[in-house]
Design a protein around this nucleic acid. Structure first.
Length: 885
RNA sequence: GGGAGCAUAGCUCAGUUGGUUUAGAGCAUCUGCCUUACAAGCAGAGGGUCGGGGGUUCGACUCCCUCUGCUCCCACCA
């Protein structure tokens, strides 16, 4: 049957993926083998696959598939994250589009919509991962809001609360008026934003009435002046010493506030007078505490001014800013306005400008946990790859702040705290237990009197349990409880593949939770991938529209092609500049493999043909080379140099196997191949496919199934990865030498326009090269005879070259331009002489000879000797050419 | 403002405790080929004062200092 000349992944990928699924080849159960475990960084449940996921999950799949083929019990646990704020925002806007406002719904009604949305969109990204070939154990798919996982989150909260590490307090938080929730520091993105610095006159008060004296205060937020509690000057600022002890009036509302002194103020910034607004600025809040200032909160949770503001009540903060500026200007109290660039915080999820806001939140003390989590990394119990991230990690862990874990949302695990009518807080795993606890205080408490906290927990408060809870959701919260069978077997996991952005959000906190509940690290290696950028180095984003759709790419280039394309340009920790031509390269590689198969599968073997000496040598050479390459590849893997491992394989297959080995053993047209070479070749092909399988699962399965008749239930993915044997380095070196000879001859052919079809003869100055390897030269360079240099007629014209110190000569009577030849030799001689004199200089330096290691000096002597030999030979050749002129 | 990192071929990157004849690879480029597996291919070639300067050393892409140019992280001078 005719095999098409181009590999077409359509159909193939679908076929083998369902074959693997049907045979349950991704599924893992604890057994006596060594486990190899990866838990997926759970993508947002409502997310769609982007290029970052592609890279990340391809890497995981390579590692898992390889581990599986190395005989380990490999388990890759997939799942999704409920992503509270992102998902809630999506649901809210979807409802809005339907004309439903979130505030019109009860909590229960809203959650119903949210779950409905989750059921509809939740599986998309996991289905997309299947297209990529991800060998996840889908039977173990988890969701961070699965009932039993949520239970674990609640138990964790109760555990830390009882330990005294979780508390409730009023703090300045980052308020997202759009998302209507507090967000953590890590979820705030600071961006340089053009704003204005308004210089405003504050009149000094004389018994509550403005005097004619004023000072100027600079602010970017004039709309907050009504919340001012003081104006602050530096204690040593002589310009303002006359103000000490006086009071001053807030413009427009004429509220009297004190002048205070604090060295927080920078004298040479702005005017040196700072308005202090404790409710709306974190620094001002701290100054407020130091000076016991009253707190006036004038902005509500919608970002609008409230009654406290006295004026512009109900107006949005930005609108209010414009209006206040107008009013100040009308009253002549606006001195001037400067353009100013400041760092403004935006919500990562909703992109709304973050409002610093005082509110009652739940916090977790982090210091002790951070110290422990730092130690694991410092002591290399957990390896970060690349290890430059250790510094960043340390810096963060040493400066950790308490974690604000409450969110004013509905989508998520509701905080298990109940309030009694008198305000007493009861924290318990569920309502029933809370009631029991409450009745210990007051036996008359009824269900109706308990009011549960309305907030939910930060998403990371559930995902930090992920490596534990996917196996044993009942474990979090109970350090002393014995792990279940799965957890005992799979935990700690081996490798975590994730993005550096969430090193602190997620990785560090998983280490903390792992330590707390399992007394152990959650993973041994953390491989941090780079950010996928476009050709111009811009981060890929939906809004820029510069991110290709991975599914479309896979349709065009095949999943294997896309995988290879991504991996080839991704060294750990470096950003990858994505370019479709890389994927094209991956596709071309698939095609190369396909065609190699086409060639080999078309051969007819013949039992009666003996194996030629040349083919035997080729088999011996490639067998050795294969072992050497496997060793190299293994080494790359231990160092997580995945792209290097792939490149080594790419070259082994394309260059060594296809361009050299197959060409050397290839039978002539209409000729059969001997059975020995045929079988060895199939064995090599088989091994190469197995080595390639973790990178290119689909095409390798397709070909592997065909290269030998396979039984049902067999699959390359559960075959074993080829191992390296002892190999003969010298033999490989001699083969390389022969390749060089061939390249030189081809070069001579090309530069002189000699067709490959015209055979040539060659003279060699050495007989050290194994005879059977020279047979490669005969075939690949179309040589009809090889003779010793001694037999050469010195008057004959031709081309000469050197490989190492061995001299070669090809008689070419008519074609040679002798002057050109002499010129070439002169160039080479010049280079050699310069080189030699550098070596000589080194060797005549007694300090070098004395202090350098013996081997290094010996190398220099060898260089000297070789250079001398070459110069001698070239000089001789030059003289002969001259004679012939 | 603090911290970390990077700078090697046109592009993306290797270069492992300083020494291996001329600093490597892939892609791209150029030249010649429809050679009966593959033009998504074959064969060959060119291309780098290792960002600038200084220092340590017998010897520096590699270690130190400095300058320049980028990147990232942390930090709310109103």
């Amino acid at each position: 049957m005719e095999i098409p000349a181009k590999y077409d992944p359509t159909g193939t990928e679908e076929k083998w993926y369902s074959y693997w699924l049907n045979n349950k080849l991704f599924h893992s159960e604890p057994d006596e083998r060594e486990p190899y475990t990866i838990v997926i960084p759970p993508p947002n449940v409502t997310g769609v696959l982007h290029m970052g996921h592609m890279l990340n999950n391809t890497l995981q799949d390579v590692l898992v598939r390889r581990a599986r083929m190395m005989g380990k019990n490999a388990c890759w646990v997939p799942g999704t994250d409920h992503a509270s704020i992102a998902t809630e925002a999506k649901v809210v806007s979807k409802l809005k589009a339907q004309g439903i406002d979130k505030s019109d719904l009860s909590r229960e009604e809203f959650l119903e919509h949210a779950w409905e949305w989750k059921e509809k969109h939740g599986g998309i990204i996991l289905e997309q991962l299947k297209k990529l070939g991800a060998s996840c154990d889908w039977d173990r798919t988890k969701f961070t809001m699965d009932p039993e996982l949520s239970k674990g989150v609640i138990n964790t909260f109760v555990h830390y609360y009882k330990k005294g590490l979780i508390y409730r307090g009023v703090r300045m938080v980052n308020w997202d008026p759009e998302g209507q929730t507090a967000v953590s520091d890590e979820e705030v993105i600071r961006k340089e934003t053009k704003s204005k610095l308004y210089h405003i006159r504050y009149y000094i008060s004389e018994n509550g009435v403005p005097s004619d004296q004023y000072i100027v205060v600079a602010t970017t937020r004039p709309e907050t002046i009504m919340a001012d509690s003081a104006v602050c000057i530096h204690p040593e600022d002589l310009r303002y010493s006359f103000l000490k002890g006086k009071t001053i009036l807030i413009p427009i509302i004429n509220k009297e506030i004190p002048i205070i002194e604090d060295d927080y103020v920078t004298m040479d910034f702005g005017t040196g007078c700072l308005k202090v607004t404790p409710a709306h600025d974190i620094n001002d809040y701290e100054i407020g505490i130091r000076h016991r200032l009253p707190v006036t909160d004038i902005i509500d949770k919608w970002g609008k001014l409230n009654e406290e503001a006295q004026i512009l009540v109900g107006v949005d903060r930005f609108e209010a800013r414009r209006k206040i500026v107008e009013m100040l200007s009308d009253q002549g109290q606006l001195e001037r306005v400067e353009d100013y660039i400041s760092q403004v915080g935006y919500s990562e999820r909703t992109n709304a400008v973050i409002e610093p806001k005082l509110s009652l939140q739940w916090f977790m003390k982090m210091e002790e946990a951070a110290n422990k989590a730092l130690k694991y990394v410092e002591e290399d119990k957990i390896r970060l790859i690349p290890d430059k991230f250790k510094n960043t990690y340390r810096h963060w862990m040493e400066n950790v702040k308490d974690w604000c874990i409450s969110r004013q949302l509905w989508w998520g695990q509701r905080i298990p705290a109940w309030y009694l009518p008198d305000g007493t807080i009861i924290v318990a795993a569920d309502e029933k237990e809370a009631l029991n606890e409450a009745r210990k205080i007051n036996p008359n408490i009824s269900f109706e009197m308990l009011k549960q906290d309305s907030d939910v927990l930060d998403t990371w408060f559930s995902s930090w349990l992920w490596p534990i809870s996917v196996f044993d959701p009942n474990k979090p919260g109970f350090p002393d409880k014995l792990p279940n069978k799965d957890l005992a077997y799979y935990y700690p996991t081996n490798d975590l593949i994730t993005a550096p952005e969430i090193l602190f959000f997620w990785v560090a906190r998983m280490i903390m939770a792992g330590d707390e509940f399992c007394g152990e690290i959650p993973f041994r290696n953390v491989y941090l991938t780079g950010i996928v950028r476009d050709k111009q180095g811009r981060k890929m984003s939906k809004s820029l529209g510069n991110s290709p759709d991975p599914i479309e790419l896979m349709k065009i280039y095949g999943a294997d092609g896309v995988r290879v394309g991504m991996l080839l340009c991704s060294s750990a920790g470096n950003d990858i500049l994505f370019d479709e031509s890389q994927v094209e390269q991956g596709r071309n590689f698939s095609n190369k493999i396909w065609n190699a198969y086409r060639l080999v599968s078309g051969w007819n073997f013949n039992q009666d043909i003996p194996q030629s000496e040349r083919s035997a040598a080729a088999v011996k050479w490639f067998d050795n080379l294969l072992s050497q390459s496997i060793e190299t590849i293994n080494d790359h893997f231990t160092k997580f140099r995945i792209s290097d491992a792939l490149m080594a394989l790419y070259k082994l297959f394309w260059d060594d196997f296809c361009s050299w080995y197959l060409e050397i053993i290839k039978p002539g047209r209409d000729e059969d191949i001997d059975i020995k070479t045929y079988n060895s070749t199939k064995k090599f092909f088989d091994k190469l496919l197995r080595l390639l399988h973790p990178f290119m699962p689909f095409i390798t399965e397709e070909l592997w199934q065909n290269i030998n008749q396979r039984n049902d239930n067999q699959s390359i993915m559960i075959s074993t990865i080829p191992l390296s044997k002892q190999y003969d380095q010298e033999y490989i070196n001699y083969a390389n030498l022969c390749k060089e000879i061939i390249v030189n001859i081809r070069n001579i052919r090309q530069s002189r326009n000699i067709s490959q079809k015209d055979s040539l003869s060659i003279f060699i100055s050495s007989n050290t090269i194994p005879h059977e390897l020279l047979l490669f030269v005969i075939k690949m360079a179309n040589i009809d005879s090889i003779s010793s240099m001694k037999e050469r007629d010195n008057r004959s014209a031709g081309g000469s070259f050197m490989v190492g110190t061995i001299e070669f000569f090809i008689p070419l009577d008519t074609f040679v331009d002798k002057e050109e030849e002499i010129k070439k030799i002169d160039v080479e001689l010049d280079r050699l002489n310069k080189f030699l004199s550098a070596v000589n200089k080194k060797l005549s330096n007694s300090k070098f000879v004395e202090s350098a290691p013996k081997e290094v000096v010996e190398i220099e002597y060898k260089k000297q000797q070789d250079a001398n030999t070459k110069i001698e030979k070239l000089t001789k050749a030059r003289a002969e050419l001259l004679k012939q002129l």
